[in-house]
Simulated scan of single mutants.
Amino acid sequence: MKHVPPVGARIDDRTINVVATVLDKFWLRPVTRKGYTDQRAVRTPDDPMTLVLVKRAVVASDNDVVALTFADPGGAALPAWQPGCHLDLHLPSGRRRQYSLCGDPQDRSGYRIAVRKIPTGGGGSLEMHALTEGDTVTVRGPRNGFPFIPHSRVLYLAGGIGITPILPMVRAAQRLGTDWHFVYCGRSIDTIPFLDEIWQWDPARVTIRLDDEHGIPTAADLLRHAPRGGAVYVCGPPPMIETVRRGFAETGSKNLYFERFSAAPVVDGTAFEIELARTGEVVPVAADETVLQALIKVRPDTAYSCKQGFCGTCKVGVLAGTPEHRDNRLTDDERQSSMLACVSRSATPRLVLDV
């Protein structure tokens, strides 16, 4: 009976043993030890970056929209991104806000975003407008919740500051030789940014619609150039997106992609109460109101960002009651003890929050 050595035993062959010894000493050990580190080799979008503001430019005639370009302080190339990506900015005040990248993905020397000033908002836009060249911010991302898909025929729609994710998409469509058309809507010619860049595109493929000249656009106005069998991309205020959604079925287009720049209105909601466990205060939440809106009334410093249920900034612990989860962020385990205040509601008359 032939003897078979156990697994891992040295084989009784001098030539093989010599080769194995040489390989182990002069190749395997040096390779496995050289430059070893227990740090991750690949950066993730959750890893923070400190970037410096290198260019600030007004990009709308009413002076309410500024384009801000951020770069690595040492001049290193920034992580790659694709049309539709956004950045999470952590501002000096502690606020977190999200802004779409509106530059050129092929230029990795800087990230460009654009911010409209909203005096009656939560203060984030005012803080962004106050930044000056040389200021630094902490950034996470890029992330993509509105991905560009290279369809052969596409209609791009933008309303006001909703132009920001659409700009790099149209540039990508041009490079790919896509059959595209772009419809840009705004209150007036003074309020819509980046017109100087858009005028450089093929004028036969661009339609500018202004409320003060043409009236509020209907679905037929917006979707007149929707390609049969193609796709429609839209970014803008909720009424514009809802108009497009209602009229889309009549176009013959196959795919509709949209991104909101503000929260969608609450629908089919019922009133309930939230109890703030740390103080015992009871706060009513109206049927058409979000938990976040109710919280801000009594806690103006409540943290939030996207207000659409995907960034996670407004996550709050739930100590009692049953949340009605409407977010796209939390895991099943997280939903056992927390909720996102910007979109989720209550399935019980009262929620007790760890606030």
Score class of each variant (00 low, 15 high):
Leu167Val: 10
Ala158Gln: 10
Asp46Val: 04
Thr322Met: 12
Thr120His: 07
Asp202His: 03
Pro142Trp: 01
Val291Glu: 09
Leu353Tyr: 14
Leu91Phe: 04
His325Phe: 08
Ala226Gly: 09
Thr348Met: 09
Pro193Glu: 08
Lys34Asp: 13
Phe272Gly: 11
Leu195Ser: 13
Gly122His: 02
Cys314Ala: 11
Gly312Cys: 02
Val154Tyr: 02
Arg153Ile: 06
Arg95His: 12
Ser344Trp: 03
Glu213Cys: 01
Val266Ala: 05
Arg10His: 09
Val318Phe: 05
Val343His: 11
Ile166Leu: 02
Ala172His: 00
Thr37Arg: 00
Asp202Arg: 02
Cys85His: 12
Val232Ile: 11
Ala173Asn: 13
Phe146Asn: 02
Asp327Pro: 05
His86Glu: 09
Pro238Leu: 05
Thr322Arg: 09
Pro349His: 07
Ile216Pro: 01
Asp202Phe: 03
Asp332His: 09
Arg171Thr: 14
Asp212Met: 01
Thr69Cys: 09
Tyr156His: 06
Phe182Asp: 12
Tyr111Pro: 00
Gly103Trp: 10
Arg33Thr: 15
Arg246Asn: 11
Gly312Phe: 15
Arg40Tyr: 14
Gly252Lys: 01
Glu259Trp: 09
Glu250Asp: 15
Gly8Glu: 05
Phe148Gly: 01
Gly317Met: 02
Ala347Phe: 06
Ile241Gly: 03
Val318Asn: 14
Lys315Glu: 14
Arg245Ser: 14
Gly280Ala: 02
Pro45Ala: 07
Arg175Tyr: 07
Val170Lys: 02
Ser337His: 15
Arg40Ala: 14
Asp190Gln: 06
Thr32Gly: 13
Ala71Pro: 06
Asp72Asn: 12
Gly84Ile: 06
Glu250Phe: 05
Ala294Gln: 06
Ala286Trp: 12
Ile166Cys: 07
Gly269Pro: 06
Ala219Tyr: 04
Leu53Ala: 10
Asp47Arg: 03
Arg350Ser: 14
Asp179Phe: 02
Ile216Phe: 12
Ala41Thr: 15
Tyr233Lys: 02
Asn255Leu: 03
Gly160Ala: 05
Thr136Arg: 00
Ala20Arg: 06
Trp201Met: 07
Asn328Arg: 07
Gln106His: 05
Pro48Thr: 15
Ser346Gly: 13
Gly269Ser: 05
Asp301Val: 04
Val232Asn: 11
Ala57Lys: 03
Ala347Trp: 13
Ser125Lys: 00
Thr322Asp: 10
Asp202Glu: 09
Phe248Asp: 12
Ser100Trp: 10
Val4His: 13
Lys25Leu: 10
Leu319Gly: 13
Leu353Lys: 09
Gln82Asn: 15
Tyr184Val: 04
Pro323Asn: 08
Lys2Asp: 14
Asp12Ser: 15
Gly124Asn: 02
Arg97Gln: 09
Lys34Asn: 14
His90Tyr: 11
Thr279Leu: 01
Gly145Val: 07
Gly312Glu: 13
Ala60Gln: 07
Val232Gly: 10
Asp135Val: 03
Gly230Thr: 13
Leu23Trp: 11
Val7Gly: 03
Arg228Asn: 09
Asp24His: 06
Lys254Val: 05
Arg10Phe: 13
Glu127Val: 08
Met339Pro: 14
Arg140Val: 01
Thr21Gly: 11
Ala287Arg: 13
Ile208Asp: 12
Trp201Ala: 11
Ala71Leu: 01
Asp288Val: 04
His214Ser: 11
Ile198Cys: 07
Lys117Ser: 12
Ala57Leu: 03
Gln82Met: 05
Lys315Trp: 11
Val22Trp: 03
